[in-house]
């Protein structure tokens, strides 16, 4: 059953077509990887799902009783207040998301434990390492127990240990019933962690499915995967085959 579905999402900024008829579904409890080169339209799609970009055409449906309140957003930037402590940031964002009183206290305590920041909870965030800030950034987006969490590159710029910790946190969210849509450039991680993958390029969805399904789709369409570094075609090679090798900056 889908908790989130997008149909024909189209958005242009002037002459730039950021989204050109994107359709996808997020199933209940799944971790869906959204991949694509820089400028493919991933962040625009996430912002549209979060209600921060108004689509020119297309629809976004959230199948949850709480509507948009069921959505948790973790932006690509570390969007926390650097002069506030971790606890104060959690209290602030929890409160802004409508969590109050005892429930807020409980959720803040849970978030500090969940992120492993319990002992540093009273320190200003500006003293934190990149990995600690990233974990706090995620926690600030999920205090209100969202059913759908949109994570825009949550592991960018962090070391492997912090990345591992972040994925452990995300597994915890899924165990509690949340469905996650994750954008990332780490293809191996997406291959290893996500049940399904959506690959976008030039504002369009160019492939959807599990990794074996996508390899089969490419091979069935007569495509040839140019670089094969291991015996079994990897997501990495599928991705490069579909999106090309040229830089997008």
């Amino acid at each position: 059953m889908n908790v989130l579905s997008v149909e024909g999402a189209t958005k242009s900024f002037g002459s730039v077509h950021a989204l050109s008829g994107v359709s996808l579904e997020l199933r209940r409890g799944e971790l869906l990887g959204l991949l694509g080169p820089n400028g493919a339209g991933k962040t625009t799609l996430v912002r549209a799902l979060a209600g921060r970009v108004r689509l020119d055409r297309g629809t976004v449906r959230i199948q949850a009783a709480r509507g948009r309140d069921a959505l948790g957003v973790v932006p690509q930037e570390i969007a926390v207040y650097p002069l506030l402590t971790a606890r104060e940031n959690l209290e602030a964002f929890g409160s802004l998301q409508g969590v109050r009183g005892k429930e807020l206290e409980e959720r803040v305590a849970w978030a500090l434990e969940w992120t492993g920041l319990g002992e540093r909870g009273r320190e200003p965030v500006r003293r934190f390492s990149g990995g600690m800030k990233r974990r706090l950034n995620i926690a600030c987006g999920v205090l209100h127990r969202p059913e759908v969490v949109l994570l825009d590159e949550p592991t960018v710029g962090v070391d492997p240990q912090s990345r591992e910790r972040i994925y452990t946190m995300l597994d915890g969210l899924r165990r509690e019933g949340a469905s996650l849509l994750l954008t990332t450039h780490h293809l191996e991680e997406a291959e290893a962690r996500c049940e399904r993958i959506v690959i976008m390029d030039h504002g369009k969805v160019v492939a959807t499915g599990t990794v074996p399904e996508m390899v089969s789709q490419v091979e069935a369409s007569g495509g040839k995967i140019e670089v094969i570094e291991i015996r079994r075609p990897s997501l990495h090679s599928v991705f490069l085959h579909l999106t090309g090798r040229e830089l997008r900056e």
Binding site: G51, R52, V73, P75, I78, A79, P82, L96, Q97
Partner: peptide, 13 residues
């Protein structure tokens, strides 16, 4: 610039 504005605007405020 830090993204907190976007995040705050995404809440009920």
């Amino acid at each position: 610039e830090s993204g907190t504005l976007e995040r705050v605007l995404g809440t009920r405020v």
